[in-house]
């Protein structure tokens, strides 16, 4: 399978006064297109820092990130327009849906289409909402949607720019087990049907069988997970 993103030797240290914390310690990871991967690990293990580095939000101090084979960030220096890269090729899903509060469900997806340079954003937004079974709520504001509906809209928004890479940071933390599994299955569906690489940070071990690959982080280091499930490790 084609490689969507590859990180090599990422190291990131947070310094607060005289205290320094190593959030990423020589982390290397490759995410292939069309696969859905889970990133497990306790709080403070470096998962969010890795997501930020892979999502070109907050670069690591050292190491390199390659996107579709092209070096994009090296040793903390951007080699490309990261904002443009996020806009065109990346999708994000958050713990809380983080929908834009003053936009309706459809507009939340539409703005992402627009930013991603996808023509006829309104039509595409409607298609995506239908794909994720929330077509009936397109005129609703985020506060009018249930947690599950919000997360579906957030996934639709993440898909709006036809991303090569979707990064999801604990997207089911606020959902019950049934809705949680539904969302995870949606990620699998997106990865397999649309060919995107999906990395999901999760604490939820009940739906690990949905993932193709499992990674586990601890103390800033990454290793293949030992968790049970149908996934390859």
């Amino acid at each position: 399978m084609a490689e969507a993103v590859r990180a090599v030797g990422l190291t990131k240290t947070y310094v607060t006064g005289t205290t320094s914390v190593v959030a990423l310690d020589d982390v290397s990871i490759t995410l292939a297109s069309g696969t859905v991967a889970a990133l497990l690990g306790p709080s403070g293990s470096g998962k969010s820092t890795l997501i930020k580095a892979l999502g070109f939000v907050s670069p690591a101090d050292r190491g390199e990130v390659l996107f579709e084979g092209r070096s994009v960030v090296k040793d903390g220096t951007a080699l490309a327009d990261l904002s443009e890269l996020r806009r065109r090729h990346l999708g994000f899903v958050f713990q809380k849906a983080n929908l834009t509060s003053f936009l309706t469900a459809r507009e939340n997806v539409e703005i992402a289409c627009e930013l991603g340079g996808k023509g006829d954003g309104r039509r595409r937004a409607r298609e995506l909402l239908a794909y994720l079974d929330v077509a009936g709520r397109e005129r609703s504001y985020p506060e009018m949607l249930s947690g599950g509906e919000q997360q579906r809209v957030a996934i639709a928004r993440a898909l709006a720019n036809e991303p090569s890479l979707i990064l999801a940071d604990e997207p089911t933390a606020a959902l019950d087990s049934v809705r949680s599994r539904t969302v995870m299955e949606l990620f699998r569906k997106v990865a397999h049907e649309r060919g995107a690489a999906v990395l999901v940070v999760t604490h939820d071990h009940r739906a690990l069988d949905v993932f193709d690959v499992l990674y586990e982080m601890e103390d800033g280091r990454i290793r293949p997970a030992t968790a049970a499930g149908g996934a390859r490790r």
Partner: peptide
């Protein structure tokens, strides 16, 4: 922040 993350200029 979300809009910036999504790459909004």
């Amino acid at each position: 922040a979300v809009l910036k993350l999504m790459g909004a200029p």
